[in-house]
Simulated scan of single mutants.
Amino acid sequence: MPGNFFDTNILLYLASGDVEKAEAADRALALGGTISVQVLNEFAHVATRKMGFSAQEVHSFLNTIRSLLDVIPLTVDIHDMGLALAERFKLSIYDAMIVAAAISVNSDILFTEDLQHGMKIGGLSIVNPLRQDP
């Protein structure tokens, strides 16, 4: 079933002190969807290293996220697809792995600020929930 997939930056904005970005992230996440273990790992890294979260705060935030969204594991197939996508579309390896994970669960929308809004990769549409169209 098609659905939504969320990149790490959407979770980071939800946890940020920026009200506008947090509200945009909250609206997107309210639609439900999926993340990968990569997203959990990246969030934990940035939250502790750059946002000053304690280990307990990271656990609490991610437990809440895990109760709201489906989480898929990283697999060798996702890794291989990500490598191919990175090469074909000139994506960073990390962005390509997110795209590959989204494609692996037949998502039709990837919410991210890291890729070009409106870009299509196969049946996957890139949507920047922070973009404010005129």
Rank of each mutant, 00 (worst) to 15 (best):
M1K: 09
P2W: 05
P2G: 07
G3S: 12
F5I: 08
F5Y: 13
F6R: 04
F6W: 09
F6H: 08
D7E: 02
I10K: 05
I10T: 10
L11R: 00
L12I: 13
L12Y: 04
Y13D: 15
A15M: 12
D18K: 15
V19R: 15
V19H: 10
A22S: 15
E23G: 04
A25D: 03
A25H: 04
D26A: 11
R27C: 04
A28S: 11
L29F: 01
L29S: 03
G32I: 11
G33S: 10
T34Y: 10
T34H: 08
I35F: 00
S36R: 05
V37S: 12
V37A: 14
L40M: 02
E42H: 01
F43Q: 00
F43Y: 01
A44H: 02
A44P: 11
A47L: 03
T48G: 13
T48L: 14
T48D: 04
R49D: 04
K50P: 04
M51C: 08
F53Q: 07
F53P: 06
A55K: 11
Q56T: 14
V58I: 05
H59K: 12
H59T: 15
S60R: 14
S60L: 12
N63E: 13
N63L: 10
T64G: 11
I65W: 05
R66M: 15
R66V: 12
R66A: 14
S67N: 13
L69E: 00
D70Q: 07
D70S: 11
I72G: 03
P73C: 06
L74A: 06
L74N: 05
T75H: 01
T75S: 13
V76F: 07
V76C: 04
V76W: 05
D77M: 10
D77L: 12
D77V: 12
I78T: 03
I78V: 15
M81A: 12
M81Y: 00
M81F: 00
G82S: 11
L83F: 10
A84F: 06
A84V: 10
A84Y: 05
E87D: 11
R88F: 11
R88Y: 12
F89D: 13
F89M: 06
F89Q: 10
L91S: 10
L91D: 09
S92H: 00
S92V: 01
I93M: 10
Y94R: 08
Y94G: 04
D95M: 13
A96E: 13
A96T: 15
M97Y: 14
M97D: 05
M97L: 15
M97S: 08
I98A: 05
I98K: 02
A101G: 09
I103N: 00
S104T: 06
S104Y: 12
V105L: 03
V105R: 02
V105A: 03
S107C: 15
S107P: 01
S107E: 00
I109C: 03
L110P: 01
T112C: 06
T112Y: 03
D114P: 06
L115V: 11
Q116L: 08
Q116V: 12
Q116M: 08
H117P: 06
H117W: 07
H117M: 02
H117I: 05
G118W: 01
I121T: 07
I121Y: 03
G123I: 09
G123M: 10
G123A: 11
L124F: 02
L124H: 02
S125K: 12
N128W: 04
L130G: 11
L130T: 15
R131G: 09
R131I: 12
